[in-house]
C-alpha cells in the first residue's frame, strides 16, 4: 500500500535563547488505511510530532509530505485548506464548540470549509451520530454531555469531511476504561469502514497493542517501531 504521510529528517527545537530540542531527525512513513499508534512517556515528543504531521506546528528542520506534497512551502491559508480537506483531529480535551449542539458541531467542518449544508450532509451527520451511538442526544448543547459523549461527538466531527487521515492525541486520555474500550472499537470500525488512516497517541499499552503498528518515541527519537500487519 502506498504511503499517505512521509516525515523526513524532522527536528523540532523550542525557544530562541534557551533552546530545547524535542525531536531529533525523525524519519517515518505511514501507509494508507493503516491504523498506527504512537506511545512514549510524557515529554518524549509524541504530541509535538502529531501536531507537526497535522500541520498545526512547523518543524524546525525537515519536511512533511502529505500524499506526496511537501507542506513546508505552503502558506497559512493553503495549510488551512489542506487540513479542511484531508485531516481530521481528535484531541484529548474533546474541544467541541460549547455554543452549538452536538449535531451542529458535527456539521461544523462542512460550514468551516464553506461548503453548502445539503440534505446529504445532514443525512451523513445523522449517520455519523448513529455510528458513534449518540442519536438520542444529538440536539443537546455540547456542554450538556458527558466526557465520553463529547469525545464521540468529536470523533463524528473528525469524520464529517471524510478525511483521509485522522490524527488523535490521547483521545481517551481522561475517560474511564469502559468508555476507552468503546471508543477504540469505534475507531477501528471507522478505519475498516471508511478506509481512513489513523495515527493515535496513547499512553495505554493495552490500547496500543490493538493497532497495526506501534511506534515508541523516547527522548525525541524513534525507539521502537513494530509493524504487526
Amino acid at each position: 500500500m502506498a504511503n499517505t504521510i512521509e516525515i523526513r529528517n524532522v527536528d523540532k527545537i523550542y525557544g530562541n535563547t534557551v533552546k530545547t530540542q524535542v525531536l531529533y531527525d525523525i524519519n517515518l512513513s505511514f501507509e494508507k488505511e493503516s491504523f498506527n499508534s504512537i506511545i512514549g512517556q510524557s515529554g518524549s515528543g509524541k504530541s509535538t510530532l502529531l501536531n507537526i504531521i497535522g500541520t498545526l506546528d512547523k518543524p524546525t528542520n525537515g519536511e512533511v509530505f502529505i500524499d506526496g506534497i511537501s507542506t513546508s512551502t505552503m502558506n497559512k491559508n493553503q495549510l488551512a485548506e489542506l487540513r479542511g480537506e484531508k485531516l481530521g483531529f481528535v484531541f484529548q480535551f474533546h474541544y467541541l464548540l460549547p455554543e452549538f449542539t452536538a449535531i451542529e458541531n458535527v456539521i461544523m467542518p462542512i460550514r468551516a470549509n464553506k461548503k453548502p449544508v445539503t440534505k446529504e450532509v445532514i443525512k451523513r451527520a445523522n449517520e455519523l451520530m448513529d455510528l458513534v451511538g449518540l442519536s438520542g442526544v444529538k440536539n443537546n448543547l455540547a456542554n450538556n454531555m458527558s466526557g465520553g459523549q463529547q469525545q464521540r461527538v468529536a470523533i463524528a466531527r473528525a469524520l464529517m469531511n471524510q478525511p483521509d487521515i485522522i490524527l488523535a492525541d490521547e483521545p481517551t486520555g481522561n475517560l474511564d476504561s469502559d468508555t476507552t474500550e468503546l471508543i477504540y472499537e469505534l475507531l477501528r470500525e471507522i478505519n475498516k469502514k471508511y478506509k481512513t488512516t489513523f495515527i493515535i497517541i496513547t499512553h495505554d499499552r493495552r490500547i496500543a497493542e490493538k493497532a497495526d503498528r506501534i511506534i515508541e518515541l523516547k527522548d525525541g527519537k524513534v525507539n521502537i517501531d513494530i509493524n504487526y500487519k
Binding site: E81, L82, G84, P98, E99, M108, K114
Partner: peptide, 16 residues
C-alpha cells in the same frame, strides 16, 4: 480563543 483554535484546526482561515 479555544473555539477559534478548533475552527482553525478544522480548516478555517485567519480571514474568516
Amino acid at each position: 480563543s479555544r473555539q477559534i483554535g478548533i475552527l482553525k484546526a478544522m480548516g478555517v482561515k485567519d480571514r474568516t
